[in-house]
Design a protein around this nucleic acid. Structure first.
Lengths: 206, 206
DNA sequence: TGCGAATGCAAGTAAATACTTGCTTGCACG
DNA sequence: CGTGCAAGCAAGTATTTACTTGCATTCGCA
């Protein structure tokens, strides 16, 4: 693993564990197995380093995609939601720090919002296609439903550590959230036997 | 306003704005209009002060209550959800900091979880009563629906600052979330003309 | 008036922290 | 071999921060 990548990876780890102020250059250097001076020689300042680290982490996110042609909405949504949920849980420490420091350092934390915003749009557009295909009830509010599904995944990923008792088991949470939303939207299973979890394409390891 | 309360209030304000490490005793003293030494004489240490401040803030929360006898579930849920949402939004900075520092200082942030946990139980129990009263469809998953409504309010209160475009207008957000959940649960309006927003009792100013 | 408690003020201490400098060491490449 | 670059290492600096100490001031109250 090249030195620069090792430093960046250590920086997100330490930042996720301690936040900006707690992520001292000493700690980052130790975590990366590198001399503290090297950080400054490579990135100039602590702020630039952490900024680069967060950008690097959030940048290479290529989360799951929903299919252009809805075939089995319930299965497709479930697979997609599970991928988003897993991603949020994997990065939950960093996300929490970004959220809490957004007021003080908006330029850094702003990057962390692009992912969710984009995911929300993807979901909203997909639901629109589902309705256009006649697979959902006409009266339902797709946009609010999309927001709620996103919030459910988000709230679960953030809150499960502190209040495990109020969430469904992690293994089936995404599926259950999707089921409730599907019920609200009047989404029905397709007539023909569907392929399971079709259509989810890519999910980076990040 | 007595001195001790003034300090506690300044402490939550500064803590909400800067987090634990950023909430320096100097800043808190300035915000309270008090000499820095007074903080130590009154509370002993910075950690004890901030701990007391958070406990004081979250302790006096007496959020809204749902009625024991559901009469108009949609109206009652809407009023309740709006109160919870308003409360979360008012305290969102502090909540964000508590969440992000829970791993480092669990004893402080833990207090912030009691409210939501309790609210979730209140909601779940209420929905059970609604179903028992025959006002909801029998097959629906009440617990998951309760979790999703809580997460929707939470996600909205936390995320609206960063991604305002993906949420419904703040004035009607709670109502819309409740409507989707009601639809998922098959909750119907009562036959007789309901009183508006009945049953929500107390809401502290906090 | 006088006493005691609470608060302010000035100053100081020890530690942590971001960042610098100067020098050495090791490694690749001609 | 030797030249140059990248990294390590030791040491130092200026600032911030939690917390202490000693003393002056003020206020309530008998």
């Amino acid at each position: 693993m090249p030195l620069r990548a090792r430093i960046l990876e250590a920086a997100v780890r330490v930042y996720g564990a301690h936040g900006f102020r707690g992520a001292t250059t000493k700690r980052i250097a130790e975590a990366a197995g590198v001399n503290e001076v090297t950080l400054f020689r490579t990135f100039g300042s602590k702020a630039a380093l952490i900024d680069a680290a967060i950008r690097d982490r959030t940048g290479r996110d290529d989360i799951a995609h929903l299919p252009a042609q809805p075939a089995d909405p319930l299965a497709e949504l479930t697979a997609w939601a599970a991928a988003i949920h897993a991603h949020m849980r994997r990065n939950r420490s960093m996300i929490r720090k970004c959220m809490s420091e957004m007021e003080e350092r908006p330029e850094m934390s702003g990057a962390a919002c692009e992912g969710p915003t984009w995911a929300h749009h993807e979901l909203r557009d997909y639901l629109t296609r589902v309705r256009a295909a006649g697979l959902a009830a006409p009266g339902a509010d797709l946009i609010v439903a999309a927001t709620m599904l996103m919030s459910s995944l988000f709230g679960d990923a953030m809150g499960r550590d502190m209040m495990p008792s109020i969430y469904p088991p992690a293994s089936s949470a995404a599926e259950q959230y999707v089921r409730v939303i599907a019920r609200a939207l009047g989404i029905s299973a397709p007539a023909r036997a569907p392929k399971r979890a079709a259509g989810v394409r890519a999910m980076s390891a990040s």
